[in-house]
Each structure stands twice: as C-alpha cells, then as structure tokens.
Design a protein around this nucleic acid. Sequence first.
DNA 1: CTAGTGATTAAC
DNA 2: TTAATCACTAGG
Length: 228
Amino acid sequence: MGGRSIGRVLIDRATLSGDVLPAARRLLGCTVEADTPDGVVAVRLVEVEAYRGADDPASHSFRGRTPRNAVMFGPAGHLYVYFVYGMHFCANVTCLGDGESGAVLLRAGEVVSDPGIARVRRPTARRDVDLAKGPARLASLLGLAREHNGLDVTSPASPVRIVAGAPVPASRVRSGPRVGVAAAADLPWRFWIDGAPEVSPYRPGGTRRRNGGQPAGPRRAPSVRIDP
DNA sequence: CTAGTGATTAAC
DNA sequence: TTAATCACTAGG
C-alpha cells in the first residue's frame, strides 16, 4: 500500500455537517495540507472561528445567498475563500449544508511540514510563529486564493485537504469573541488551543470607526475554558 | 498607530 | 451611479 498515507485519515463530511460550533471545535488540532507550487505545506490548526448564516449578523451569509458566499449554501466540507481589504484572502471550511449556511474561518496554525518551504512561501515572516498567525497569513502560506473557492477538503484527490487530528481535550481549548467582528461581538464563537503562540491577540470588535467616540470596551478577551 | 488595496453592498 | 464597509497585515 502507499506508505506515505499510513495513518492519514481525512476529516469526514458528516463531522462538518452538524452545527458550526462543534465543527469549529473539532477542526482544532486537524491539519490543513495544500499542494503549492513550492511543494506540500501542512498546518495544524490552533485557532478557528464559527460563523452561522441563519442567526449570526457577522456571517457573510446572514443576508442570503450572493455570488460571493454561494459555496456557504452548498454541502459541508468545501473551502469558502474570500478576498478582503483589497489584498488578502481568508479561507473557511463550510458547515451545515442541506439549505443551511455556515462556515469555520481558519485563523491560525502551526507549520508541521518542511519549514524551509514555508519560509520561502512567506518571506516576510520574521519568526516561524508568524508563518500562519492570522487568517490571511495562513491562506497566503497555503497559497489559498480565488481559484480554490469551492474545493472539497474531504477528498484525497483535492489539492487542499484536511487531515483529522486527535481531538484536542476540552481542558486545552478556550473560547472568546471573534476577532475584528463588530456585529454579534458578544458571541464566544472563536476557539483556540490554550497557550498556542500562533493565536492572534485580542482586538475589540468595532474598533474600526464604528463607535462614534464612545468609550472603548474591555481591552482583554473575556475568554473562557471549555468544560467537558 | 497608520497606509495600503479592491470587491461587495446598500443607498441614491 | 457613489460611498462606506470590510472575518487584515506590515511597518513605524
């Protein structure tokens, strides 16, 4: 048998077809593997955010289907890649499906493939910890862009795949408000592995000229432990 | 802290 | 048609 795939099981669609919160929780510790022009790059996810169209004003699909968010309305387990701020791409994995839209934003990870290849792909990263720290850096490292929108990450034939990792124990997971999100800033739908150095620092949602001179909110994330 | 960049969207 | 927004990063 193919020796290089021993022990390598891709995440299955059913796991992602349930609600976005357990899906996000399950994606922590899984590995995104991408075929790039420089070789295979693999990143173990340490930070993700859940978005759910139906009742989540911060979701791109909250106001219904558009050409941009169409894949969020399709089956779970596909990439939703969008262009933002005129220069960056961010990548999500779709959830739910069957008429319901949802996705998990891949926010940060640790490189578990050849570091040399990763450094070539992200020459501005000063430390290894910066290689996939932040959603646009992660997408850039993995080479994810417009043409990857809609790819099935559960298929071994796909150029971008997600390898199932051992579930991260609840005692190692924290949650808190999503980064850079003004709407629904109270929802603790961001999940990260406690102590991972690649996790983004907290920035209060709505910092971006949304509060007309109002006093700023708390400067630290009200993060909480996940109980088993 | 700020500049940079362009797609998307709602308002007109 | 126009203008504001935007699930961000790099460099001071």
